[in-house]
């Protein structure tokens, strides 16, 4: 009697539990679907963004676009001064930021002793990575343009971007160095190498790939950086080229280009976006496509490089 009474309610409970489990499994599936949907839409957004630029700018992908100066007539305007400017600025950035960043990274990983000095430096490096880029522009405006009197030149722009790139190089150098096991260093010390010999001939050699990854990512960021260069007062309309860095006569190298006015690809693009005529928007799209191809290629190379290093090296 008692058993018979219990049975239906137990069955009811069982059914309830089964419904609950089914529902939770459904939730599980629903969330997995949602996650995939979100990631797919992000990827599609990236693709649409890229296609939109390429399709809008497609009519401008001619040799003339790369060999013409900007012009008041949209059809004849090109990005010659912009890509030359970008290249020269990046040369300065590279020369300044890479050695400085690697040296700082080496110091922080290999030399610094735990103490207030290394703490202060570490806090500063991580803090610099979070400072908005336009603040670097204000720093450069106050310091390089007016206090040092460098003017609105390629040198100023290169130094500004170098400051922006520095934290990226420092962080990637440190990560690469940290991955090297201590036995490598001990082996070198054991045969009588000095600290610097260990660092230069072993630590830096083996962390080369990781450092390169950081340098490429930093350069890709520097190519697209606009706000700090607008802040230092980069000109938006440049119809001349800076003096050539290489000359036929000795001493073959001419440094006048460092003081020349300049424009860069993203500023040229910004300038064209800001104009009301649609014809200029096409130019902007084409410039944007050039920038995005450059940055995506560089980032892609960096990501691939890092992937290869991770796969290949087994200590």
């Amino acid at each position: 009697m008692a058993v018979n009474q219990k049975k239906p309610s137990a069955l009811k409970d069982l059914n309830l539990i089964r419904t609950m489990i089914r529902q939770h499994k459904r939730n599980d599936l629903a969330f997995a679907g949602l996650g995939m949907f979100v990631i797919a839409s992000l990827t599609i957004t990236l693709i649409i963004l890229f296609l939109d630029l390429v399709l809008d700018g497609y009519p401008k992908f001619t040799l003339d676009f790369f060999s013409n100066f900007p012009s008041r007539r949209a059809a004849r305007a090109g990005i010659l001064s912009a890509w030359v400017g970008s290249s020269l600025v990046l040369i300065v950035t590279f020369i300044v930021a890479v050695p400085l960043g690697i040296a700082a990274g080496i110091y922080l990983e290999e030399y610094s002793k735990k103490g207030w000095l290394s703490d202060i430096i570490e806090i500063n490096v991580s803090n610099l990575a979070g400072v908005p880029s336009i603040i670097y522009g204000l720093l450069a405006l106050g310091l390089f343009v007016y206090s040092f009197g460098l003017g609105q030149s390629i040198l100023t722009a290169g130094l500004t971007l170098a400051l922006l790139m520095l934290p990226i190089v420092i962080v990637s150098t440190r990560e690469a160095i940290r991955a090297i096991p201590v036995q490598i260093r001990e082996a070198a010390y054991a045969v009588g190498a000095t600290k610097w010999q260990v660092v230069l001939n072993h630590v830096v050699q083996y962390s080369y790939g990781g450092i390169l990854t950081g340098v490429i990512i930093g350069m890709a960021r520097a190519i697209g950086e606009t706000a700090p260069l607008i802040t230092i007062g980069a000109l938006t309309f440049i119809a001349f080229l800076p003096p050539s860095p290489v000359t036929i006569d000795p001493p073959f190298i001419n440094l006048d280009w460092l003081n020349a006015g300049f424009t860069v690809l993203p500023i040229q693009m910004f300038n064209w976006i800001s104009r009301p005529q649609h014809a200029f928007h096409i130019n902007a799209a084409a410039t944007g496509a050039v920038i995005i191809i450059l940055t995506v290629l560089m980032n892609g190379v960096a990501i691939k490089l890092r992937y290869n290093i991770r796969k290949k090296i087994k200590w």
Binding site: R221, I223, T226, H281, G288, T295, I303
Partner: peptide, 24 residues
């Protein structure tokens, strides 16, 4: 596969995102 795509999204210059906002 997804993490590199996210990294590429980080690498897109902001001026291009600005164009995207205004024109699209």
């Amino acid at each position: 596969t997804v993490k590199p795509i996210l990294e590429l999204l980080v690498g897109v210059p902001t001026v291009v995102f600005g164009y995207f906002a205004l024109m699209l």
